[in-house]
């Protein structure tokens, strides 16, 4: 029995610690919105915590009194003699305390809402994010079309520069949530929602779809990298370029497999003849950290596992298993790895 309890406690502690890596954690804010949200959370914790302690203290006191009353005079006398007036006062005080507590919470959340609505949007980056079953399309907008580009399942943001996200959905309702940066915002088919981010702290954070959207909802994550403005600019310049041309025989053959096979009907690789629009843009696939919305690491092993059978990695996802020879698979992976 003791043993079981100890194991249970250790398990709970393990679970609690697992949540502490900090990359997907609303209590570890890296942006203004999350910081504001944390403020309300703290306020609520303090107010509700204090009320909880008070209630428990009164309960303990009442129990203690009840025990003593058993040994004392009969109940009617006890009620008459000691309780009436103080009890009434205590109840009035208690009611006042509740009203005060709720008032503090209401004012606090109003103030936070107001500061969220007044987020700084000067010189903001404009990014369109489209939710798909089960991946994110990310388009960096610019008035100048030659400075627009598309990527998938990753977001790069310069620190201390606001970003306005335009949120849309292709198929069903999804919800965009990077806890370290801001609260959730739904992506709804046929409608555009907006979310402003003011990232402050450099780091890599993890976002996750937060609205059940079908079979692979759990494997619909995205990486958000907050970096210093120079690093962001370098990344952006690299993303603006078309894919590098294949540089050896294996890569040339791999590109052939990609374009002549099914891949090119669904995927775009800028600078090649693959112009599919229904799957993630793969132009700079090798520069990402994760494959298939967080399901696998980018790299040879991840790519082979994915292409060998995408339906084993994310059952039911909309990329079909394409049968091919081992040689073709190797060439294809060599080509995809060259897309940095």
């Amino acid at each position: 029995m003791r043993r079981a309890a100890a194991w249970l406690a250790m398990g709970m502690a393990g679970l609690a610690l697992a949540a502490c890596s900090g990359a997907q954690d609303s209590l570890n804010p890296a942006g203004d919105q999350a910081a504001h949200t944390q403020d309300v959370w703290r306020l609520m914790l303090i107010v509700c915590g204090a009320m909880y302690v008070l209630v428990m203290a009164f309960l303990g006191w009442a129990l203690w009194r009840a025990r003593r009353a058993l040994d004392g005079p009969p109940l009617e006398d006890a009620v008459k003699s000691s309780a009436d007036a103080p009890m009434r006062n205590a109840l009035v005080g208690w009611t006042a305390l509740i009203i005060l507590g709720l008032g503090v919470l209401a004012v606090g959340s109003f103030l936070v809402d107001r500061s969220l609505a007044r987020a700084d949007t000067k010189d903001a980056l404009h990014i369109k994010i489209t939710g798909n079953q089960w991946w994110w399309q990310v388009e960096y907008q610019d008035p100048d079309p030659s400075r627009q580009f598309t990527t998938a399942n990753e977001l790069h943001l310069p620190a201390n520069r606001p970003a306005i996200l335009e949120l849309a959905a292709q198929d069903v309702i999804h919800s965009f949530w990077i806890p370290n940066l801001a609260g959730k915002e739904d992506l709804i088919p046929g409608r555009t929602n907006w979310l402003t981010l003011n990232p402050r702290r450099i780091g890599v954070y993890r976002g996750q779809c937060a609205e059940f959207c079908g079979l692979q909802h759990a494997q619909m994550a995205l990486d958000a990298t907050v970096e210093d403005p120079q690093a962001f600019e370098a990344w952006r310049q690299a993303q603006l370029k078309p894919a590098p041309p294949p540089s050896n025989d294996a890569q040339v053959r791999g590109q052939g497999v990609f374009i002549n096979g099914a891949c090119g009907s669904c995927h775009e690789i800028a600078g090649s003849d693959a112009h599919g629009r229904t799957g993630p843009d793969l132009t700079h696939l090798a520069s990402r950290r994760k494959l298939a919305a967080g399901a696998l690491p980018v790299g040879r092993d991840g790519l082979i596992a994915w292409l060998h059978d995408p339906q084993a990695i994310k059952p039911g996802n909309h990329m079909p298993l394409v049968h091919m020879s081992d040689q073709d698979l190797n060439d294809l992976v060599a080509y995809l790895q060259s897309l940095s």
């Binding site: 969220l116 609505a117 306005i164 335009e166 088919p189 907006w194 979310l195």
Partner: peptide
């Protein structure tokens, strides 16, 4: 057109109205 397919009136990106709750 289905209700959800009707083109929504474009919101102004400069002053986002929907904020995280």
């Amino acid at each position: 057109l289905a209700k959800t397919q009707v083109k929504p009136t474009p919101a102004k990106p400069a002053a986002p109205t929907d904020q995280p709750r």
